[in-house]
Nucleic acid binder design. Structure first.
Lengths: 220, 220
DNA sequence: CTTATAGAGTGAACGGTGTTCACAACTATA
DNA sequence: TATAGTTGTGAACACCGTTCACTCTATAAG
């Protein structure tokens, strides 16, 4: 009597094989060079069949972007949070973001710089695991503020935004090969992060007021 | 007897009209949505005709990228260099770069983040006016180092790279709409730049050793 | 003034793209 | 066994960048 269930399982298996094929192709060649026909070839279905699993090519890459965010969060959490000093704990996720841009350039491009897949993040609801990570990092920053590592009255969310910006810049420049030929992008990323971090600790009038992602836990 | 000259002028006029049409289209709709056929339509030529003026679509956008760099350098030089204090003079070109990303987003995308036009900068030789600007800015930074605004032994080219990175990050995040809906990208860019600048002045061990763009003037 | 020539511009085509749709084929239910 | 419903397909549409054989025209030569 598990007929419906089996059918559903089969459907899901095909959907997954589409995503797998798409991922393989796009990790190897980039979004631009993945076509529906190539995916169809690889899974031995007709191109049209894919459209009964995903409404458009973009939706396949929305799914892959979500996969990318999971990968990112995973690798950012690989190391422990607490047993090291606060500054190191703060550096870690941002360096991790930069490293992600090098180890998974195509994912990074899809998630952060590609404009051909417009509005890759439609439903931030589906990305609550990203918001969770953001909150966790902000809490560490908050702890650092309390510990006097940053000036009091510093907004932890602003720190998050600024350090992200500091690390995304070099990442994108490297990804898009906009650096001078011999430049060491890794060192640049490290230094830009370190400069921003040092500057934040030294203190200056911060004007950036991030739109707090509405905290589900009341108060705090 | 000026027949050859007239013909050459006419050729150049058509080439220019192709670039104009391409620019209009791509400023309005982005590189992705500009097709040879649309350009051809607009200038009332057949698509094939364009290929006797530019060897490929990419070459049209190489030309537009160069135009973009000229625009950028222009706007970065609009204000005077000297009569203000050194810190302001240092901030200016980087804020200018960020502002450029807002006022000319499609140019900025083409010049810095678009990967669909691979290796947009083939001949850095043709972009010596960019190198000139870079050198001029580095010299101001050098002056600031001499004036004790930065720690001694600071590499002005590293400062240039770091401040660029600090400003490109927010620019790209805004361009690719990867910021949270309510976030003020302008403030983020200002603050990231200011954080990096403050950090550089406070001093930390810089590891980034930029590949000096070979200075034509011997010594110095 | 006529003819030959070089060059610009064209239409049609090639192989590619994302997407749609009528239809065939198979499966599960009654 | 007949019926309903789902799944996959082939063909097509409207695009894309690019190429090529061709025409036509304006110039130069005779």
């Amino acid at each position: 009597m598990g007929v419906k269930e089996r059918q559903e399982r089969e459907r899901e298996a095909v959907a997954r094989s589409i995503l797998d094929a798409a991922r393989d192709l796009f990790v190897a060649e980039g979004y631009q060079h993945v076509s529906i026909r190539k995916i169809a070839d690889r899974i031995e279905y007709s191109p049209a069949a894919i459209y009964s699993y995903f409404p458009s090519k973009d939706d396949i890459f929305f799914a892959l972007a979500e996969e990318g965010f999971r990968l990112l969060v995973e690798s950012a959490q690989a190391a422990p949070d607490d047993d090291t000093d606060l500054l190191t704990a703060i550096r870690r996720p941002f360096l991790s973001l930069y490293r992600f841009s090098r180890t998974h350039p195509e994912y990074f491009a899809l998630m952060f710089v590609d404009r051909s897949v417009p509005r890759i993040i439609r439903d931030w609801e589906r990305f609550d695991f990203v918001r969770d990570m953001k909150l966790r990092i902000s809490q560490i920053i908050q702890k650092a503020i309390a510990a006097g590592i940053f000036p009091p009255e510093t907004d932890p969310h602003a720190v998050f935004g600024i350090l992200s910006g500091a690390v995304v810049g070099p990442g994108v420049m490297q990804l898009c090969s906009r650096l001078a030929p011999g430049d060491d992008a890794d060192a640049l990323a490290r230094d830009t992060l370190e400069a921003a971090l040092t500057g934040l600790r030294a203190g200056f009038p911060i004007t950036f007021r991030p739109s707090q992602c509405e905290d589900t836990s009341a108060g705090q």
